[in-house]
């Protein structure tokens, strides 16, 4: 498992008395697209924030490309591209300035060339000198991808990248994720199960801070019944959890 790009071991995150993530462990290999599934408040965002080095874990740990997110945080962060749920932008910057800034900040020496390449990759070349405030929502989402890819990281962490955009763009995003998944390790969170089914090699299902199931979408489905959808898988798991809990 040393070759895993993402390795999470008994990761726990508490906020005061509330446990947001409770001793979860999973890993992701290079070139794998892993879906992080679960309803709102299941701990998806918290897990991702720990992996990106934004939040320090309360217990346990995680490694990105072999670098511990606590003890070797800067190196871990160097290997992650992160797209938060709401695309963070500087409205007064142009597209190019924005991507250039992140490429530079994350240590790319050839920042200019890289920025242009990434902007082309997300189809924003024509708008490269447009102020971000004047971009449409979909364009902003693409810009978010450009930002996450600015330093060409081996690991991408995408927090609900399909939320709040129109269906045509959702398909676009899914294609992008699949495309990226060929060369990079992608951790992708969603609360829409069908999406994970389409995109992910493997899913990790979180509920109330715990992993309730993980595996290939097809395997998970097979366990229940061959033609089950992931929704049904999920509901059945939550159902047994509840039953077991009581």
């Amino acid at each position: 498992m040393t070759d895993a790009m993402i390795e999470v071991t008994r990761l726990t995150k508490r906020f005061g008395d509330r446990i947001a993530v409770d001793h979860i462990s999973f890993s992701a290999k290079p070139g794998e697209v892993v879906g992080l599934l679960g309803p709102n408040g299941a701990g998806k965002t918290t897990t991702m924030r720990v992996l990106t080095g934004f939040l320090p874990p309360s217990e346990g740990g995680a490694k990105i490309a072999g670098h511990d997110v606590v003890t070797d945080s800067l190196n871990a962060r160097r290997n992650v591209g992160y797209l938060p749920e709401r695309v963070p932008v500087y409205p007064d910057m142009t597209v190019r300035e924005y991507v250039l800034f992140w490429a530079r900040l994350r240590g790319r020496r050839d920042a200019r060339a890289r920025a242009d390449a990434v902007i082309a990759q997300v189809n924003l070349s024509e708008r490269r000198d447009t102020l971000i405030r004047n971009l449409s929502k979909g364009m902003r989402q693409r810009l978010g991808f450009a930002q996450a890819l600015a330093h060409d990281p081996p690991v991408l962490i995408l927090d609900e990248p399909t939320i709040g955009i129109d269906p045509r763009q959702v398909i676009e995003v899914r294609d992008t994720v699949r495309e990226l998944g060929r060369t990079k390790t992608v951790l992708f969170s969603t609360h829409i199960l069908s999406e994970a089914d389409h995109v992910c090699d493997r899913v990790v299902i979180l509920h109330q801070g715990r992993i309730v199931a993980q595996g290939k979408p097809s395997d998970l489905k097979r366990k229940l019944r061959p033609d089950a959808t992931l929704e049904e898988v999920f509901l059945s798991i939550i159902g047994t959890e509840r039953g077991a809990g009581k």
Binding site: G53, R78, V80, W102, G107, Q147
Partner: peptide
């Protein structure tokens, strides 16, 4: 407010 703080703090920067 813009959320860029999250990106700054996840960049490999102290």
């Amino acid at each position: 407010r813009e959320g860029t703080m999250e990106l700054l703090l996840t960049a490999p920067v102290r």
